[in-house]
Amino acid sequence: MSQASILLVDDEFPIRATLGDLLRRRGYDVQTADSGEEALDRIAQRPFDLFLLDLRLPGVDGITVAQRVRERYADAAILILTGHGSLDSAIEGIHLGVFDYMLKTSSPQDVLARVKSALEAQAEQRHKKSLMTTLQTVVGELGGKQQEPNETPTQQPAGDQWIRVGELEIGLWRQMARLGDQTLNLTPTEFRLLSCLAQQAGLVMSYANLLRCAQGYEAESSEAAELLKPHIYHLRQKIEPDPSNPRYILTVRGTGYVLAVEAPQSK
């Protein structure tokens, strides 16, 4: 099996050299770009499995690069690099799925762990898509109606475990979520967050517990809150009628988040 391909985009040479060498020594196929323009050129030439992307780039900024990546390669994993302690400005305006983000001061072990986690989640998603395509083909050959790739299934597959919270349905085996008759287009991290909250619906999950459940690593409450914030923001964009006034994913200030068992009706 060939190693995953990575495009590292950063205008700082020390970052490109250090991270590039670190990843190559782990066997990854790594290319680098020092600007948004060069990144777009490389994206047009060949696909990549994962993008390590600095948002603050001269010329074409990182937000534009991330948008082009998502338009061209729907299942590519994107990890955001930032040199800023406060991430509010770094993620402003990004309304697309990113797997995770990390500070440029993160340890080499942390960078490798995040890259490995992102690629494993991507491989799992690709495998499940391939498996579902095969199953749909088999059903069609047996005389059933072959389901279109984007069609919502009318029957839930045997053995799947579903969680239902009000209008929300989460299929753990298929890693799909629906709100009413709408299928939600979630990133792997968003799906795990929603699943963790749904399994504790009506109960407050602390920042640290939610991060542990969804991402599998430990952090102090304040750090966990910052790590969760962008993912909760994107998740609300996809499921809330009014993301600025959440009805489903509620914040318990200073503590954590809770998935409302019954979303309050708008007046």
Rank of each mutant, 00 (worst) to 15 (best):
M1G: 15
M1D: 13
S2E: 14
S2T: 05
L8A: 11
V9F: 01
D10S: 02
D11V: 04
E12S: 05
P14T: 02
L22P: 01
L22M: 05
L23P: 04
R24C: 09
R25W: 00
Y28K: 12
Y28W: 04
T32A: 14
A33W: 01
D34K: 11
A44Q: 13
R46M: 13
L50N: 01
L52D: 14
L52P: 11
R56P: 03
L57I: 02
V60C: 10
V65A: 08
R68T: 11
V69Y: 06
R70W: 03
R72L: 14
A77C: 07
I78V: 13
T82H: 04
T82G: 01
T82A: 13
G83V: 05
G83C: 09
S86K: 11
S89C: 03
A90S: 13
E92Y: 12
L96P: 08
F99V: 14
F99Y: 14
D100L: 06
Y101H: 04
S107A: 12
P108E: 06
D110K: 12
A123F: 01
Q125H: 12
K128S: 04
M132V: 12
T133H: 14
T134I: 07
L135Q: 15
L135M: 15
T137F: 06
G140V: 01
G140I: 05
L142S: 11
L142Y: 11
G143D: 06
K145P: 12
P149W: 00
T154A: 14
Q156R: 12
P157K: 07
P157N: 08
A158Y: 10
G159F: 02
Q161A: 15
V165Q: 06
V165C: 12
E167Y: 04
E167S: 15
E169A: 11
R174H: 08
R174I: 06
Q175P: 03
Q175I: 10
M176H: 12
L179Y: 06
D181V: 10
L184Q: 02
N185Y: 00
P188I: 00
P188W: 02
P188Q: 00
L197V: 10
G202R: 02
L203G: 09
L203Q: 15
V204D: 09
S206E: 08
A208K: 10
A208E: 14
L210D: 08
C213D: 07
Q215R: 14
G216M: 01
E218L: 14
S221R: 04
A225P: 00
A225C: 03
L228R: 12
K229M: 07
H231D: 01
R236A: 14
D242Q: 11
D242P: 00
P246C: 01
R247N: 03
I249Q: 02
L250D: 06
T251L: 15
T251I: 12
V252G: 04
G254P: 00
V258F: 00
A260H: 06
V261W: 00
V261Q: 13
